[in-house]
Amino acid sequence: MEKLTVSANPHIKGAATTQRIMLDVIIALVPAGVASVIIFGWRSLLVIATCVLSAVISELICRKIMKRSNTISDLSAVVTGLLLAYNLPVSIPLWMAAIGSAVAIVVVKQMFGGLGHNFVNPALIGRIVLMNSFAAAMSHWTLPVMYQSGADAITTATPLVQMSNGTAVKYTDLLFGTTGGCLGETCVIALVVGGIYLVCRRVISPAIPLVYIGTTALLTFFAGFDPLAQTMSGGLMLGAIFMATDYATSPTTTLGKVIYAIGCGAITSFIRIFGSIPEGVSYSIIIMNIVTPHIDRLTRHKPFGSVKAKGEGK
């Protein structure tokens, strides 16, 4: 008889793999990518490709140098690249995009041990680093192609800035994403479709996006803003559905997720109400990322039967 394999139970495993989860996230991001090409033109595809390529190559080189296993097949670098690209203006010089992507992968992800070990969202840090290094290029918003007239690209302001200047923004523009802004953040419909896909595939629980968006709507409403326009602009959908739900940097229990999402929504609202920086979403998620380990500790489950429940007491 051949040598038998002896290993711990269970001897069968479910179908879920890290790669499949990442693939689902990529699939969920496709609609927003397609929308960005329609809205901002082919250059948006170029930015996306640059970021993804840079992320994958950085990961490959980094793992080689650190003498660790090659992990590009888990597709998480592709996700990071995509998310960073979606957080950049379409007009960004490609080399800047490449740097941002490399920083996200090398400094934020791999230097902390790779997938699952980073404590803040790599793509968001990539964005913040670019924002602070190349402020001008990072706030250069091109008007969507359908509103362009001449040969020269006309610039515009983001809906959030327009609203704070008192200009009315059309809901349809927000829904379809035909506004100024980062290339993947504008089209609300595409992002929501992706989010629904992720929930159906059980990749994310709806707790974080719903509570995050709900909190923001509520707080901005009480502050006298238009909650609908607020939730559909400023990258909130992209942040709430795709960035705040990153496994490594968000709490694991449902209660933890709710607390975290309320935190995200509250900080985003405060930044919008009292401050004027456009990337409120990025900062609030990063802040809550940092708080996540504490939330995790506070919302730890008690083993089954430890809590006296109603109807017990026998």
């Binding site: 890290t18 888990d74 490594a248 694991t252």
Partner: peptide
């Protein structure tokens, strides 16, 4: 062959545990 990779903190083990434990932690 089941090769394992790093925990991605997805929380599936936490929601699967009937004893309400947190296996990843």
């Amino acid at each position: 062959k089941m090769s394992s990779s790093d925990c991605i903190r997805c929380g599936r083990c936490v929601s699967a545990c009937p004893m309400s434990l947190m296996p990843a932690a």
